[in-house]
């Protein structure tokens, strides 16, 4: 901005945007997801994808994995704000290109078409270890677990091979090696 004029803080130089995967361990109680999501929407942070499920039924702990983009300052704020929430136990943050972390998304795809089309479709996603979950003489439902961009690519390729329905999860993440995030 050439000549920004305000007594309010002005939208300063926009820092470099990075994609981060934020993992949050929370008490699995009513409204906890709303608290986490509400924090993002209330403060203007964006959520690219979201995955959440209980991981410890004894201690009632859920693990929320959020993919978000932001400047380093925004990412830092997100983490600090999340840590302030009462039901939050810990918060981990990984860069999307972090080699020490595994990211996976799952997709279910329904392909409808004649046999040759279906075979072509299956062949097209062979590289990604597609699992056939359901088969009829008109259709097939397959499951693929891969990176987001891979699934984007497969879905694009399968459109012309009879992909009629696509359902996908948000990314989940785990560190490589024996170490556990504390």
């Amino acid at each position: 901005m050439a000549n920004p004029k305000s007594a309010y803080s002005i939208p300063g130089k926009l820092g470099k945007l990075d994609t981060h995967i934020i993992v949050v361990w929370v008490d699995n109680e009513a409204g906890v997801l709303a608290r986490v999501v509400g924090l993002f929407s209330g403060r203007g942070y964006n959520i690219e994808s979201l995955a959440v499920a209980e991981i410890d039924s004894k201690l009632n702990i859920s693990r929320i994995t959020i993919v978000t983009t932001g400047t380093p300052q925004v990412i830092e704020q997100i983490k600090l704000q999340l840590k302030k929430l009462v039901p939050v136990h810990k918060v981990a943050d990984f860069k999307r290109d972090d080699k020490k972390v595994i990211f996976k998304e799952m997709a279910l795809m329904k392909i409808v078409g004649n046999n040759s089309k279906r075979q072509k479709a299956l062949k097209a996603c062979k590289k990604y270890n597609a699992i056939i979950l359901d088969k009829t003489n008109k259709s097939v439902v397959i499951q693929i677990t891969a990176l987001r961009r891979d699934i984007d690519l497969i879905a694009k390729n399968l459109r012309k091979l009879g992909l009629v329905s696509l359902s996908r999860t948000g990314a989940v993440a785990m560190t490589r090696g024996a170490e556990v995030f504390k």
Binding site: N3, P4, K5, S6, A7, Y8, I10
Partner: peptide, 10 residues
């Protein structure tokens, strides 16, 4: 004098 953009941002 306050001018231009300053007006909208107070």
């Amino acid at each position: 004098k306050i001018t231009g953009k300053g007006k909208t941002l107070v």
